[in-house]
Amino acid sequence: MISTKSLSRRGFLNMGAAAGASLILPKTGVIRPANAAGPLAPVVEADAHIAFGHTGPTSDEGWTWAHDQGMKAVEAAFPALRTSYVESIPYSADATRIFRQFVADDACMVFATSNYGDFLYDVAKRAPEVAFYECDGRNPMDNLGTYYVAHWYPSYVAGIAAGAMSTTGKLGYVASFPVPSVYSGTNAFLMGARTINPEATLQSIVINSWFDPQAATQAGVALIDAGCDVLFGIMDEAGYLQVAEERGAKAVMWNTDLRRYGPNAYISSIMVDFGPWYVEQVRRRLAGEWMPTYDLLPFGAGVDVDAWGDSVPADVAAKADAVKATILDGSFNPFMGEIKDSKGTIKVAAGQTMTEEELYHWNWSIEGVSGLDN
C-alpha cells in the first residue's frame, strides 16, 4: 500500500558534472553517462508528485527513518507538491510493481532509498520523462542518478575511539550482506582502531538483512561470546546496542542517535542527513534543471559522527576529534597505502591513496577483518 503525504529545509559533494556534460568522478577518470537530450522539462510545484521507495519501515529509527526525515524536509520546502512512499519494499518482482505504480500515479521524481538494481532499472528505462535516483546505486542512466554517503571517514574516526576503549582488542561487526558499504565500514573502522592498537582485529557476522532486530541481537550475543568487547554494524535498529548494554560491552551505531537504548554502551553513531540534498534535487526537478548526477554526501555535510557517549573518556574523544579535524581540512587521508587484504596481498601500494570511487566500490577485507571474504 502506498502512503501519501500531501500539501505539506532541512552541501554535498557532486561526483558528477554540470548539466549537459558527462559525469566524471574525481581522481579516477571514470565517465558516467549524461542525458544527451538535456534536462527534463520543468514541473509546476502544485502538479508535482515526488515518490520514495524504502527498504525498511519509516519507524526503524535508522536508515529509512533518516530518508523519511529527508522527505519531510522536501514537504516543508515545497508545500504545494505531493509526496508518497512505500516502506519495506522486498527485493523481488514486487519492487518492480511498486516502482511502476509510482510512475502510473504520475510521479515526476522517484527516489529508491536503497539499491534495487534490475527491479528499478527496467522501470526507469520505460519512463524517460521521470527522474529517478537510486541510493548506493551502481548503474546510472540517462534519467537515473545515484547518491550515497562517504561513511568510511566517520567510521574511521569512530574506530579510533573503539580501539582506545577496547580491552580485548577484538571488535565485532553485525553485517547485513557482504556488499561494498559493509567492506568500507569494517575496513575503515578497524583501520581507525589500529592507530591505537595495531594488533586489533574485527570479526563480522552476516545476517542477510538490513532490518532484523532478532538476528542482529543474536549476532551481537555471538560476537561478545567470542570475546569482542566493542560492536559496530550497519543495521537499522538498536538490537546489538542493547546487547552491549546488557553485557557490559560498547557499541558504535549507524544512522541516528540511539544512545537511549544503551546509554552506558554507546560510543557514537554514524549520522546521516539527506534533507538538504533531497531539497536541492527536487528544486532542480521543478525548475527544469535536473539531469542525473552521481553524488556522494561528504563527511561533515551529510554524514558525520554523533556526539560522543557519556562513557567515552575525554582524552579519547579529543584524540578522535583531532583526527576528524585533519580529515575535514584535507591535511590527512586515512586511506593511504600500504594496505593489504585479508590474504596478505598488497592492494594499495605505499604512497598511493584510495580514490572516492575505490572506497565506494570497496569489495575486499583488509588484514585483521574476518567473516566477509570466502
Score class of each variant (00 low, 15 high):
3 S>T: 15
4 T>E: 14
5 K>D: 14
11 G>M: 08
13 L>D: 13
22 S>N: 15
23 L>F: 02
24 I>E: 14
27 K>G: 12
31 I>S: 13
42 P>L: 10
50 I>V: 15
58 T>I: 15
65 W>P: 00
73 A>V: 07
74 V>D: 07
76 A>R: 07
80 A>Y: 02
96 T>I: 08
99 F>V: 02
101 Q>M: 10
104 A>M: 10
116 Y>I: 06
120 L>E: 05
123 V>P: 05
124 A>G: 11
125 K>G: 04
126 R>T: 14
128 P>Q: 09
128 P>Y: 07
135 C>Y: 07
135 C>N: 13
137 G>F: 11
148 Y>D: 10
151 H>N: 14
154 P>W: 02
170 K>V: 00
172 G>A: 07
174 V>M: 04
178 P>Y: 08
179 V>K: 04
190 L>C: 07
195 T>Q: 08
199 E>W: 00
204 S>M: 09
206 V>P: 02
206 V>D: 03
210 W>F: 15
213 P>Q: 07
222 A>I: 00
223 L>M: 13
226 A>W: 03
226 A>P: 09
229 D>C: 06
233 G>F: 00
236 D>P: 01
236 D>A: 15
252 V>R: 00
253 M>N: 03
253 M>S: 07
258 L>C: 08
265 A>E: 06
270 I>M: 13
271 M>R: 07
304 D>Q: 12
316 V>L: 12
322 A>G: 06
328 L>F: 10
329 D>Q: 12
334 P>K: 12
341 D>H: 06
346 I>G: 01
354 M>Y: 01
355 T>G: 08
359 L>E: 01
363 N>I: 06
369 V>Q: 06
370 S>Y: 02
